[in-house]
Design a protein around this nucleic acid. Structure first.
Lengths: 212, 212
DNA sequence: ACCTGAACACCGTTCAAGT
DNA sequence: ACCTGAACACCGTTCAAGT
């Protein structure tokens, strides 16, 4: 069998890709993944779709991410960073109660405007055996810390421990109203809009918290 | 070609199944589906597994349910009924504030003890085009109504509209603390247990609500 | 070393064929 | 009429083979 493999360096004829570094490919993947989630929803996020969109094949995705779960966690991480950034901008040297209100309504706005990416954070559940990576948990903590700091400046009657618990109670609460509203489980038609409800929750909780 | 198909009534040799009515099969499916979710989690719920477990084949599932999404909605419906039943038992002729506290902690207990079935309600998201069936929405409303009724008896300073909004704000809040805690997003270690946090939220919100 | 793409196991869903 | 089970389209994942 005689074949035409007589060129000394085969890779001259068809260049190995190498047009992008691993890091570049990783970023391309994360970018198109985010776009797919935003435009089509989390359930439409597929390896083959991502691969096609970045101009590589499925195998390449597995060069830069362990698997789909790993990829998803990184998309979620990007969203958490984004949320932290938005909330941070509400923090100024004004009074704590107003800042907490601003953080809460900003969170609601973010969820509302980036509904698919925000829902993805809570809809996706990692497998039974897997545990949340450290770098991801740290991002979660960063978001919570923003509210905790404000709570500690709110009342001198409570110690740090109690402030922390109150912050988490209220923050869980705000999140709950957002999730029930935005996923249609809390029908707020006729009972004021969602923002009003969030404000009501924050206002009354803080009023109760500061009272005797 | 001569074959041995010379018995007049073939279905005598292998009886058509018909051991169960459609309604019985439907119940069998829902029962094993619930068990699978409880024991292995929502992500392990598969048609083939259900079929094997009830002693029929995949095709039979599609005789009694439109598709997997329909089946899932019915499992979720069962859970909502179950939750409503549990919460209903907390309602007595005592004072409204205590009843709301009892409802909240009972909800937390239920979520904690039936974690997989409870998480399924919120993790599962129906497709973009699909909308929540009427019979399902009614079950959701039944659960909310329990809290709303208590809120209307709590304060004479607010009208029905305001009470409704307050009930939904707090209920969203309680749910939020539950979901963030039970899915590990709210690290409550060192800040008291979850129940304490739920009680704190309810207590302070109601205190603020009843104040001027 | 980087990347491909066929192959695999495993999904939900359908439907012609059996009794 | 009830039920089967092969077939299909579509997933995520792997890995021998190409350059």
């Amino acid at each position: 069998m005689y074949t035409v493999l007589n060129h000394s360096k085969a890779y001259y004829t068809m260049a190995r890709r190498s047009e992008h570094s691993q890091e570049e490919i990783k970023q391309m993947v994360l970018n198109v993944a985010e776009t797919i989630v935003d435009e089509e929803g989390f359930s439409e996020l597929k390896v083959r779709k991502i691969a096609m969109e970045i101009g590589y094949t499925v195998g390449s995705i597995y060069m830069v991410f362990e698997n789909m779960a790993d990829l998803i966690m990184h998309v979620k991480g990007q969203t958490l960073d984004d949320i932290a950034l938005q909330l941070q901008q509400q923090v100024n040297d004004g009074n704590a109660e107003q800042i907490i209100q601003d953080i809460a309504t900003t969170y609601l706005s973010y969820a509302n405007e980036n509904i698919n990416r925000w829902r993805m954070i809570f809809e996706h559940q990692l497998a039974e055996n897997e545990l949340v990576p450290d770098w991801y948990q740290r991002k979660v903590d960063t978001v919570f810390a923003l509210v905790e700091i404000q709570f500690q400046q709110l009342s001198s009657k409570h110690d740090e421990q109690q402030s922390k618990q109150a912050a988490r109670a209220l923050w869980g609460g705000v999140h709950g109203v957002c999730i029930l509203s935005l996923t249609g489980k809390l029908d707020l038609v006729g009972v004021g809009n969602i923002e009003e409800t969030v404000v009501l929750l924050v206002e009354n909780f803080i009023k109760g918290w500061k009272a005797d």
